[in-house]
């Protein structure tokens, strides 16, 4: 079976000389949900921006059988729906409906078709009631759902979510888990939230200084790198308990 995403020996250096990605190999198959873990600045976001050609490094990136090159960008960007960390950057149109219809219109659909797609996507994200609202009138959780609807309206085969739980309170995070678990697309989730990742992903990879250093189940990766959501390790807790005595 052809993988949805196939990355071979991907390298990328920023203009200031920072080697952000250093020989990444990665494969994503249909139906898979993979969590991307790693410290801040380890290359996770840089990696996902390579998948739809927003950043382009050396090596090979193939999405749904198409190499990510300048000629294929429009098609590739229709296959990968990217939900950015800051929803305010993604919701730039004056109303929710116009924002969700932005992608379908760019895909060449007519206004009527784009509106139908947008309404269907808003229903899928349970945000149809907000169609005529301005994005700045929405809560953080609602903005995230509308941003998701904006990419769902383009019928992507892969969803990439960059830190999807940022700014969300626990109920909004739970809503998002439920919503995402119902979507059939393959998913890549960049997150520090291991509980959120564990609820959705079967597999996880770990980034360290631009390298993909581990690939396994979420539990394996969390244990191996002590990547728990708790800020303190058991020895730290013991030390603090002794200090209190």
């Amino acid at each position: 079976m052809t993988p949805l995403i196939e990355v071979r020996d991907l390298r990328f250096q920023y203009e200031d000389g920072t080697q952000a990605l250093d020989g990444i190999n990665f494969t994503l198959h249909a139906g898979e949900t993979v969590a991307l873990f790693g410290a801040n600045g380890s290359g996770k976001t840089t990696f996902v921006l390579q998948l739809n050609g927003i950043l382009q490094g050396q090596g090979s990136v193939t999405v749904c059988g198409l190499p990510v090159t300048k000629d294929n960008l429009a098609t590739v960007r229709s296959k990968i729906g990217m939900v950015f960390q800051d929803s305010d950057e993604q919701l730039f149109m004056p109303t929710v409906l116009e924002d969700v219809a932005f992608g379908p219109l760019n895909q060449g659909l007519t206004s009527q078709q784009a509106i139908e797609k947008a309404i269907a996507a808003l229903k899928q994200a349970r945000m149809e009631h907000a169609a005529n609202k301005a994005p700045y009138h929405l809560s953080a959780g609602e903005k995230r759902k509308v941003a998701l609807a904006g990419v769902l309206a383009m019928d992507p085969e892969i969803l990439v979510l960059d830190e999807p739980t940022t700014f969300l309170d626990p109920p909004a995070q739970r809503n998002l888990v439920h919503l995402l678990s119902e979507l059939p697309q393959a998913k890549l989730i960049v997150t520090h939230n291991t509980r959120f990742a564990g609820a959705l992903a079967q597999r996880a990879v770990f980034f360290e200084r631009g390298k993909l250093v581990a690939d396994g189940t979420v539990q394996e990766i969390v244990q191996r790198f002590d990547w728990t959501y708790s800020a303190l390790a058991p020895e730290d807790l013991r030390y603090l308990a002794q200090r209190r005595l």
Binding site: I54, R77, S78, I80, G81, E89, F92, G103, V151, M154
Partner: peptide, 10 residues
């Protein structure tokens, strides 16, 4: 960031 989000949606 906005420009990247716009490009990502074709």
């Amino acid at each position: 960031g906005i420009h990247q989000a716009m490009l990502a949606r074709a």
